[in-house]
């Protein structure tokens, strides 16, 4: 294998990692601040992808499509938070699991009803098609590079939001002591709505960005959701930094395992078997990492006990 291929795959892993980060950032904040297990977070990923491909089909403008992938999920997030989620904060995790599981059914079926059962497509805009030559003779997809850059900007933006703004201080305070910030006269239900909408928007953005690489279909959010849960558990629940590091770890590990394990097994068995064993072991790698992390650090890498 050439070094170029290795670096290309490494970049793919980082790109996948940033995608997972966009999903996990919202998930970890929603869990950290409101104590809510939100299984329906994957639905916002799907809604983002569908609204982007709908707006792109209508206007032909990719930027507008991306904008839609932030706004629609946020609006739906606010609506759902207001009508259902709000009543679940005081309940135990079990009720939250059942209610948000039910929300997955509702969102998926509604999307299928509106857009039909066939996958949609979202085209990469012309200027982002094709490859770019990076230093060191590495040829890499322009679009994937843009995803990495967007992810990087959002990570930096979230860092400033959490550490340098009033909203961020309120969010951190909400994680530490809910009662106290209520006593201090901060409108906590407004804060909850904002955090939920923000998480939904980030998930929607992730869906739209990925939607241009894969197809846009019902149920596309759930596999990503489960991996995002793995990420936030590895990083420590509630920690944005943990989510970023966990996401990049999982992204790179998963991509590299997919590349190397089949090659490794080909040495000791026939090709078709090696491919299927290698790819199934690669899918297991993220969960294996999570189990290992939890065995040695039961609250994740950056979680508080």
């Amino acid at each position: 294998m050439s070094l170029q291929l290795f670096i290309e795959q490494l970049l793919n892993g980082i790109q996948f990692g940033f995608m997972l980060f966009l999903m996990s950032a919202g998930l970890t904040l929603i869990f950290g601040v409101m104590g809510l297990i939100n299984l329906a977070h994957g639905s916002f990923f799907m809604i983002g992808a569908f609204s982007a491909s709908f707006v792109a089909g209508l206007t032909g403008n990719f930027l507008l499509a991306i904008l839609a992938s932030l706004i629609f999920p946020a609006l739906i997030g606010i609506l759902v938070e207001f009508s259902i989620i709000r009543k679940l904060y005081e309940r135990d995790h079990l009720d939250q699991v059942l209610a948000t599981f039910a929300l997955i059914l509702i969102f998926s079926e509604a999307t299928r009803y509106i857009f039909g059962a066939f996958p949609l497509f979202l085209d990469i805009p012309n200027i982002l098609q094709g490859n770019i030559l990076l230093p060191g003779e590495i040829v890499y997809s322009k679009y994937r590079l843009i995803i990495i850059i967007i992810g990087l900007f959002i990570a930096i933006g979230l860092y400033f939001l959490i550490n340098r703004t009033l909203l961020g201080i309120q969010i951190k305070a909400g994680q530490n002591d809910r009662q106290m910030i209520r006593v201090l006269g901060i409108n906590i239900s407004r804060l909850y709505t904002i955090v939920f909408a923000m998480g939904a928007a980030l998930a929607g953005l992730a869906g739209a960005l990925i939607g241009a690489i894969q197809s846009v279909e019902v149920g596309m959010g759930e596999p990503v959701l489960i991996l995002a849960f793995v990420v936030i558990v590895i990083g420590g629940i509630g920690s944005i930094k943990g989510a970023l590091i966990g996401a990049l770890l999982i992204g790179v590990l998963d991509t590299m395992a997919r590349l190397f394990l089949p090659i490794f097994f080909e040495l000791i068995m026939e090709t078709s078997q090696a491919l299927s064993l290698g790819s199934s072991l690669a899918s297991m790698s993220a969960y294996l990492l999570m189990a290992l992390v939890l065995i040695f650090r039961p609250t994740g890498l950056f979680g508080k006990k």
Binding site: F31, I37, H93, I226, F229, V230, V233, I237, S276, L277, S279, S280, L281, S283, M284, Y287, L288, M290, A291, L294, I295, P298, T299, G300
Partner: peptide, 24 residues
């Protein structure tokens, strides 16, 4: 050895491993 949401997730992790094993 873990509890709360970490217990939820670690049981999920083991189940997912068996799932992918059966797929392969």
């Amino acid at each position: 050895r873990t509890s709360g949401v970490y217990f939820i997730m670690i049981t999920l992790a083991f189940a997912q491993m068996t799932y992918y094993f059966s797929v392969g």
